[in-house]
Write a protein that binds this DNA or RNA. Sequence first.
DNA 1: CGGGGACTTGATGGTTGTCAAGAAATGTGG
DNA 2: CCACATTTCTTGACAACCATCAAGTCCCCG
Lengths: 214, 214
Amino acid sequence: MGEKTLFNEATRLTLRKGQILYNQDDPADGWIELRSGALRLCHYYSDGRRQVLAFPVAGDVFGLEAGFRLSSAEALVECTVVKHRHRGDWSRFSPRPTPAPASHPLERGLALVQDSLQFFGYPTAAGRLGAFLIEFARRQGQGDRVDLPMSRLDIAEHLGLTMHTISRAFAQLARSGLIECVTPQRIRFPARSELVRASGFEAMALSDLRIGAA
Amino acid sequence: MGEKTLFNEATRLTLRKGQILYNQDDPADGWIELRSGALRLCHYYSDGRRQVLAFPVAGDVFGLEAGFRLSSAEALVECTVVKHRHRGDWSRFSPRPTPAPASHPLERGLALVQDSLQFFGYPTAAGRLGAFLIEFARRQGQGDRVDLPMSRLDIAEHLGLTMHTISRAFAQLARSGLIECVTPQRIRFPARSELVRASGFEAMALSDLRIGAA
DNA sequence: CGGGGACTTGATGGTTGTCAAGAAATGTGG
DNA sequence: CCACATTTCTTGACAACCATCAAGTCCCCG
C-alpha cells in the first residue's frame, strides 16, 4: 500500500459505491489513476445545478487540477484507484519517459475532458446520446454492449439535457434498431447496428436522428 | 527567433489574420503559448460540420495533444505565439519549477478546455451566451467590455447553437440591459449589470434568461 | 458608388422542457 | 422467498424554445 516511483508517491485506495474521493474546492494534492470501477466528476453551481464533467472508467486518469478541485469525484460503483501526490507545482509531474506516447497520463487526462465536448456537436438528443454510448462502450473496451454505471439523470446532466429527454432518446434509438435495452443499465448493440462502426470524433447519421422519427 | 530553455526548444511565430497554425490530424510536435491575438480551435467532422472547441487569447496555452492534432488552430486576428516543441513523448514537458502553480502551462491548457464545458450547464441560449461573454471578458482581462474577434457563427458553433439564435440572444441581453452592443464586435457591460459581478463557474440568474422575455 | 459578406429580424414547424402520472426495478423486512 | 416501500425509469400532453427558411439591413471594402 504505497508504491514509490522516482519522483512521485503513489497510494492505492478502494472506494465503496457512493463514496466521495474528493470534493469540489478541496486542495488538489494529487492526480488519480483509476484501476477499476467508474466515477462521476461533478461541478456544483451555487444555485444547486450540477454539471457532470466526465465518467472516468478503468484506465482513465483525472484530477489533474493544480490548486483546488474544480469538481468532486464520486464513486458510481466500487472502485480501485491509485493516487499520485504532487506538491502544488508540476515540476515533477513526468516521472519517467513513456514508450507509448498515447498512454501517458497527461494525454489521457486531457482526452477525457476534451471528448466530452464532442457530444455538443450533435444538435439532437438522440444523436448526443448515441455518440455518448459509442464513446463509453469504446472506453469500456466492450464492442457490442455497454454497462452503464450511472443513472439517467447523470447522463442528462452530462449531455446538457433532461432525464425525460434522455429516456425518450433511449426509446427512439431502440425503436430505430440501433440499440437494444436489455435492462435500463445494460445496452446491447445489435450486430448490424451502424453505431458499432462509428468511432468517437467521427461523423455519422447521428446528426439526423430525431426523437420524433420512427 | 528561437529561445532555448533547459529542456525545450521554443520558437516565436507571427500569424496573419486567417492564417492556420496547424491543421487537424497534423502530427502534434509541440504545444503553443499565445502571447497576443486570438485564435479559433476547430474540429471538423467528415460530414462538414464544425465544432469550435475554444477561443484562446493572450496568455492561454493550447495544442497539448500528443500524437495528432484533434483540432485545427486558426488565427482570428494577427497573433504572436511561442511554439514549444516536444518529441512525441511528454517526459520533458515540465522544464522548470513554477513559482505560481496556477500559471503552469498544463493547468492553463486544462482550464481552457474545461471552461468550455460549463456553458452547456445553461439550458437557454441567452444564459449560455451570457456565461460565454463573462468568461471571455474575464480572460481578456477587461472588466466592463469585451472585444469579440470571432464571428457570430463561430460563437454559435462554440455554444452548440445557430447564428440566428445567437443574434437573438444578443438582442435579448441588450433589451434586458445586461449588455450594450456598441458594434457587433464591441460589447459593453453597463455599470450595474449583474453580469459583471458573476464569474465563470458561478451560478446566477442566467439560468432563467429566455429569448422571449423582455 | 456598387457589391458582397456579416448580421439582424420575421414566420413557422419540430424538438425539448415542464408538469403530471404510471410502470418497472431495486432494496428491505418479515 | 415473498410482499411491500422507495427509488428509478418511462410515457403522455402541452407550452416554450430553437432550427429552419426567408427576407431585409448594415457595414466593410474594393
